[in-house]
């Protein structure tokens, strides 16, 4: 579905953020991308839809080379890639409905979007998604009036109404409390399963990654240093990705929980680590 071939990004400052990353993400797979700050996680997902221009390598989405597209072709391709952001990146002063419908911008003409005259099918889809995430009573509320978890749900709706093949998710839980984080992650994974979507999730929280992703890729200094199922993540691997640290707490829970999640069974130590 998505294939990265020797993806490379050198910033104008000379920093090599991605050193030829090659990855393949099959349809329907939820992949977590972990790694320390500055490892290139954010750069990697932004190179996929060229919010950041890669300086080398190729990005193939369903066989189409993203890096070779014209401006118009790129806009068309971006419609099939939903994105969910850290701190939500909602348009704060617009309503929930306008935010969700903004996911359709690539499909409607300028004047339709200017006058907010979206096709009825889009409005139906928006209501469907808002029903699904339980935000229908808030359609005409301004986005900045919502709580963190509610905002991220709007962000999820905005990405899904694009009818994407792929979701790029950048630190979706970075500003959420542990319980809301788990609810949001569960929602994302459920929706991906329902719709057969592939997803790349950048995430700092190793425990969350283990709990929700089918596959984990570890990035360090712009290189893939681990690629495998969550069960193979152990102290050695974490040391490889992040460097030396006492990982015994982090991995012990992974083996105990075995991927099963339960909000009430949260370990206080892990809650503290998340806070």
């Amino acid at each position: 579905m998505l294939a990265l071939e020797g993806l490379e990004k050198r910033y104008r400052t000379g920093d090599l953020a991605l050193k030829g990353v090659s990855l393949e993400v099959p349809a329907g797979q939820v992949m977590a991308l972990i790694g320390p700050s500055g490892a290139g996680k954010s750069t990697l997902i932004r190179c996929v839809n060229r919010l950041i221009e890669p300086t080398g390598g190729r990005v193939l989405l369903k066989g189409q080379d993203m890096t070779a597209l014209s401006a118009r072709g790129l806009r068309r391709a971006r419609r099939r890639i939903g994105m969910i952001f850290q701190e939500y990146a909602l348009i704060e002063r617009l309503t929930v409905m306008e935010n969700v419908l903004s996911g359709r911008l690539g499909y409607v003409g300028f004047w339709s979007s200017w006058f907010r005259r979206f096709p009825q099918a889009d409005i139906d889809a928006a209501f469907g998604l808002l029903d699904r995430v339980g935000l229908t009573p808030f359609v005409d509320k301004r986005a900045d009036a919502l709580s963190g978890g509610q905002r991220q749900r709007v962000g999820i709706c905005r990405a899904l109404i694009q009818n994407p093949d792929l979701l790029l998710i950048d630190e979706p839980t970075a500003s959420l409390d542990p319980k809301t984080s788990r609810q949001i992650m569960r929602l994302i994974v459920e929706l991906c399963t329902e719709r057969g979507l592939a997803a790349i999730i950048n995430i700092h929280d190793v425990a969350l990654a283990q709990q929700f992703a089918q596959r984990i890729v570890g990035l360090r200094l712009g290189e893939v240093v681990f690629d495998g199922p969550p069960s193979r993540l152990d102290a050695g691997v974490l040391t490889e990705i992040y460097g030396e640290e006492d990982w015994s707490q982090t991995v012990r829970h992974a083996s105990e929980e075995g991927g099963e999640d339960d909000d009430e069974a949260l370990d206080p130590a892990r809650l503290a680590a998340n806070a």
């Binding site: 839809n49 919010l51 806009r75 068309r76 391709a77 971006r78 419609r79 890639i81 994105m83 952001f85 990146a89 909602l90 348009i91 903004s102 996911g103 359709r104 911008l105 690539g106 499909y107 979007s113 962000g155 905005r158 694009q162 790029l168």
Partner: peptide, 8 residues
């Protein structure tokens, strides 16, 4: 950036 990512 989020608006750009939708293909607007």
């Amino acid at each position: 950036e989020a608006v750009r990512a939708t293909g607007a």
